[in-house]
Amino acid sequence: MNALAAATTTSTGEAIQFWILGTVAVIGALATVLMKKSVHSALSLAGTMIILAVFYLANGAYFLGIVQIVVYTGAIMMLFLFVVMLVGVTAADSLKETLKGQRWLALGCALGFAVLLIAGIGNASLSTFNGLGAANTRHGGNVEGIANLIFTKYVFAFEITGALLITATVGAMVLTHRERTERAKTQREMSEERVRGKHLPPLPAPGVYARHNAVDIPGLLPDGTPSELTVMQTLRQRGQIRDVSQESLADLKALEQRSGERLGREDADAVARGADPASAAENSEAAK
């Protein structure tokens, strides 16, 4: 890290690191923009951020590098992932543009902006790098140096940032808070309601015959008909109930047919069905 001394070039190691990681960072950034699923975007962005953390470290900003990893990649990106989960991790966006000309305008603007920035940087006289060596060692290290600045020169900004964080926290709570529109039921009321209601015991559990225990399969009543009460309300409303009451019968039929085929009892089977090959064929179709 002697490259942190005043210089116009960096060490070869840093150069190699820059070119490799820089490429990866750009790819990550592009992936963030171009991925259909937001979870992929988030992961790509996390990668880019880690690379940036490395670049901070390479630039002598040790504290920031660590903070970048801990706060950004660790906290903020995880927050993003939480929200992505909340919205639906499987949801894929269509990348088809709906606004007329938006994509070309956006690309044109971004490209122009990039060209302008790069031209500006290229034009600026930035040949001399003073390096951070002196600054980092003045107070005994990078962290101490930053602490010194934060609690002296930037103390007001720091305090105000604290206030900002508190405000943001409260704001987020307010935004996501849902006002209850009716009074919460007390335990007593709930128990009384239950006694007065139809179902004194707990609702029957889904799943029957120990063959299915999935939550979206209703339990069967003694006569074999499915009872929707056994399925949770959300699934009932979504209509995501799988009816398996006929499944075992169909399975049985298919098993019989297969065994019949194997034993060459087609005729007997046909006789049993009333000697009607056409209807037998239909039945076998239906069974499939």
Binding site: L105, A106, C109, A110, G112, F113, L116, L117, G120
Partner: peptide, 9 residues
């Protein structure tokens, strides 16, 4: 964004 670009230009 375009406006910003124009200002920078």
């Amino acid at each position: 964004f375009g406006g910003t670009a124009v200002v920078i230009a």
